[in-house]
Design a protein around this nucleic acid. Structure first.
Lengths: 216, 216
DNA sequence: GTTCTGATTGACAAAGCAGTCAGTCAAAGG
DNA sequence: CCTTTGACTGACTGCTTTGTCAATCAGAAC
């Protein structure tokens, strides 16, 4: 499910491998969710977005429920890989790691309008379907644990006496609230502006290491 | 639309006044949105929740679209009255006012699970429906302007050299992110715990006036 | 070329939905 | 008691949607 995200756009062959087609249909589902919202996302519309017949969607995913579940899993996995990759590329310094995680959360691939809108669609249905808590609960757990660990090390090494659990929570809810803002605000809201907001929160928690513009 | 939110629960008469019935149906819509999500909210289910026939829902609201639009307007108005009322009851001191607004955002009437879930349903559809952006956006404008004003006065009078726009934004996105957390977290999340998170953010912005537990 | 396998299509069935409407019922006013 | 008015019901319609399936098609293996 995670390999070969890229789809060959040269001249689409009539048939594709199972994995390629599934990925293409999941991407079409994300686009449709963003364009029409969860409630008006139909199999026919997903198929039309992909330029395929609606029967094929069910051939590959069996039911609409499973298509949406796999779409959510795809988004969750993409999100996880994004921040874990950014963290792996950052140095051992906790301030750099925290900065890397903040930047990762607003990377174009993650907080592109269509991606955010798709996430938001799922949030709206979350409370009524265990599906989402399954897919997202684990992801959030790993993210939180990592963030708290980084904040704890930054607190210790940086000489702050801040509660790392509180700091991590502030950073996380600030990020989530900013995503929601980007979705619901009428006036456009750039990723750069969003990141400034989260960095401001980081600067409040760790003023010796962060400014609203980034690392000190 | 704003008067007489209370419904007489003694022994339901066969007929009710137009306004009472509309309010009852809007409340049933909120419950249904929370229980089943936006996409599976049907007129029949709303009617069943209210113990009425589905024809009556259309008699009072004409279309499903209008029912949902009025439900959102009802929620937005309820929200606005809640924080404006809390603000009116607070003293002239900006720190007290900020505290009042934070408490208002987590008052049981506002962040009850069903209310939050209903809001979340609308967020998920917002980007694809201009109807909802209006209702959600306008509420935010007045709220933001007020919050920024309070932060500006607190910054001045309290001797902080903090950018009040940034502080207000931090408080707001922290609140919104915490709401989202309350919706999507698997582990339960009490309003008291939520308020602690936002007060921690306030304490970071205005440490001489706030602690995570409340006003100093 | 032939065959085999798996992807793909589109016609179809079944179910659920919003919205319509003719008629019922209850309360109020005469 | 009679009439009027407005709330209310439930059967019905037409449309949309999900899901099924037999037939078709393209590419790979031989």
């Amino acid at each position: 499910m995670t390999e070969s995200r890229q789809i060959d756009q040269g001249k689409p062959p009539r048939t594709m491998s199972r994995e390629q087609r599934r990925t293409q249909l999941i991407e079409a589902t994300i686009s449709t969710l963003a364009a029409r919202g969860y409630s008006r996302t139909t199999l026919t519309e997903v198929a039309r977005t992909a330029g395929l017949s609606h029967g094929l969607v069910l051939f590959h995913f069996e039911t609409k429920e499973k298509l949406l579940g796999e779409t959510l899993a795809y988004l969750a996995e993409e999100y996880r890989q994004n921040w874990q990759g950014a963290l792996a590329n950052a140095g051992p310094d906790p301030a750099e790691q925290l900065n890397a995680m903040i930047e990762a959360d607003f990377a174009p691939a993650i907080c592109a309008p269509a991606r955010l809108a798709a996430w938001c669609s799922f949030w709206g249905e979350a409370q009524s379907r265990p599906l989402y808590q399954e897919a997202c609960g684990d992801k959030d757990d790993a993210y939180n644990a990592t963030l708290e660990g980084i904040c704890a090390r930054l607190s210790n090494e940086g000489g702050y006496d801040r509660n790392p659990v509180h700091a991590a929570r502030i950073i996380r809810v600030t990020t989530e609230g900013t995503w929601l803002d980007m979705m619901t605000m009428v006036t456009p809201y750039s990723p750069a502006e969003a990141m400034t907001t989260v960095r401001t929160a980081a600067a409040l928690c760790f003023p010796n290491h962060f400014t609203p513009e980034g690392l000190k």
